[in-house]
């Protein structure tokens, strides 16, 4: 059973319905005791890194999530939820993140290496480049298109956490993971075949991880 963490920063309806269509059990909760019963967690998120982190700290959910991850419970962050898994963001001043994964969240530079301006947000369907095609999360996923919508991206030197990337002037981490912590920069529930397959792969992993 997947516990979707409700901390008021995300569209939980679409991802819930996607899990339902895929045939997986889930529940939505903000309550630690309830969420502790889940076999795996899902951390959604849209909006600002700083606001999201502030709510997680204040509600005690940050400590709870850290404890659960430490104990080996799977966690999947989506969109902003993925960015929170990293060390921190420069958005509206420095804000520390969970630091489960190495790397920092930065704003896209508005100009590419040749000085050419490009559009921000990175909005639309872009192609995945699998960096670790053997990852269970990418099972039955090819270099397909997924739907991105973000103005900040993760900058990391550690290629081990990059399961798939996408090119948008910079190399954009699209699917990340290490140990029992995973994330997608795009919304899998809005990313057609590839997105739903990744969601399914995560849900199956959670079921296998049934402890």
């Amino acid at each position: 059973m997947i516990g979707i963490i409700d901390y008021g920063m995300g569209n939980l309806y679409s991802v819930s319905k996607a899990l339902e269509r895929l045939g997986f059990d889930y529940f939505v909760s903000e309550d630690e005791e309830e969420l502790a019963k889940a076999n795996g967690l899902l951390l959604p998120g849209v909006g600002s890194f700083r606001d999201a982190m502030a709510i997680l700290v204040e509600s005690g959910l940050k400590t709870f999530i850290e404890k659960e991850v430490e104990a080996g419970k799977p966690l999947l962050g989506i969109c902003l939820g993925m960015q929170l898994l990293f060390e921190g963001s420069v958005e509206n001043g420095e804000t520390p993140g969970f630091s489960f994964l190495p790397g920092k969240v930065k704003k896209f530079p508005y100009k590419d290496q040749s000085g050419q301006a490009y559009k921000i947000p990175h909005m639309g369907w872009n192609k995945l480049k699998r960096q670790q095609p053997g990852s269970f999360l990418l099972n039955e996923v090819s270099d397909e298109h997924v739907y991105f919508v973000h103005s900040y991206y993760v900058d990391t030197d550690n290629r081990d956490v990059l399961l798939a990337t996408s090119d948008y002037s910079e190399e954009v981490p699209a699917v990340v993971g290490k140990g029992n912590v995973f994330g997608t920069q795009f919304h899998p529930e809005k990313s057609s075949h590839a997105g739903l397959t990744i969601l399914k792969n995560y849900a199956e992993y959670v079921e296998r991880n049934d402890v």
Binding site: K17, R21, S192
Partner: peptide, 8 residues
């Protein structure tokens, strides 16, 4: 629509 479709 949100419940049925996986596009934005």
């Amino acid at each position: 629509v949100a419940a049925e479709l996986a596009i934005p």
